[in-house]
Computed example of a mutant assay.
Amino acid sequence: MDEERQHAYLTLINALLTCPSGEEGQILQDNAELVDAGLLETMAQVAEAFADRGDENAAQFLIGMANQLGEFLGLSDSTATPEAQLRFLMQVLQATSYSDGNPQVIYPLLQENLHLLDDNFAQILYDWGTAKLAEVEAEPAQAIAATIGNFSNLIQQFPLGSQATNLEIAITGYEVILTIFTRENHSETWATLQNNLGVAYSDRIRGERAQNIENAIASYQAALQVRTREAFLATGLRESRQVGFSRIISRGR
């Protein structure tokens, strides 16, 4: 994307953000030559920047506008593009943050966008997550990581679509945020993530079963390095670990 066109996209986005309500359609019509996939990609980037600054209203406005334009341009059909998947990742993470991980909010959103949930979506989550967490300060990094963790919990339990893909996305999310929630700095959260990874690997459909079992056991054992048996019992994590081991045993027979 050349610099001149990028500047034109940003000027158009600013006009949409600052115009009186109801004039957006006319502005888009007057700038029809700029309404393309590049504009949608730039909208997603600007929305991300607004979200990072805490301006959720502007971020949500741009994500909603990008989704509507994507449908108009035929970019939200059954063929998932990386641009559409990145926009959806921004949308679902913002919705997760807004709703505090409410499945009644997130699951309908996932259901409407099942065609975007594939292995490439997991890769986009990994690429965006690792890059974003590396570039921001500690406090916003923890907030972003917590949102990714909540989303990973939700999609791990999401009953629709491909269970195999949902688990891959969840595993990716957990592994990305383990770079922020380390054993040294966030031991309790780290232990919870290790437990969640253990459950995900014990349920995993992709990959070699023996390796998945090995990864699951390693994650459960890592969690137990931090939490005592009593702590696991008090928080319910011991029970989920036992369920995980029972899954491993039953699948190994």
Rank of each mutant, 00 (worst) to 15 (best):
D2G: 15
A8V: 01
A8G: 03
Y9R: 07
L12N: 06
I13A: 11
N14F: 09
P20D: 06
S21G: 04
Q26R: 11
Q26L: 04
A32K: 06
A32V: 10
V35P: 00
A37V: 11
L39H: 07
L39M: 09
L40H: 05
T42S: 15
T42H: 06
A44P: 07
V46R: 15
V46D: 01
E48S: 14
A49F: 03
D55Y: 05
Q60K: 14
G64M: 01
N67S: 14
E71L: 08
L73V: 02
S78C: 02
T79P: 00
T79G: 02
T79Y: 09
A80S: 09
P82Y: 03
A84N: 01
Q85D: 11
L86T: 14
A95H: 05
D100M: 02
D100H: 02
P108H: 08
Q111C: 02
L114T: 03
L117T: 04
D118G: 10
D119H: 04
D119A: 07
F121V: 04
A122E: 03
Q123G: 05
K132F: 06
L133C: 10
E139D: 11
P140H: 06
P140D: 08
Q142F: 13
T147V: 12
I148Y: 13
G149V: 07
N150E: 09
S152R: 08
I155D: 01
Q156I: 00
Q156V: 00
L160T: 06
L160F: 15
G161K: 09
S162K: 07
T165S: 05
I169Q: 03
A170R: 05
G173S: 02
Y174K: 08
Y174S: 07
T179W: 05
I180R: 08
F181C: 11
T182Q: 14
E188M: 12
W190P: 11
T192N: 12
L193T: 04
L197F: 04
Y201K: 02
D203K: 12
R204Y: 06
G207W: 09
R209C: 00
I213A: 10
E214I: 01
A216C: 09
S219C: 15
Y220M: 03
Y220R: 00
Q221F: 10
A222N: 13
A222Q: 12
Q225V: 09
E230Y: 03
L233H: 12
T235L: 10
Q242C: 07
G244L: 08
F245W: 08
R247N: 07
I249T: 13
S250N: 08
S250Q: 13
R251M: 08
R251K: 11
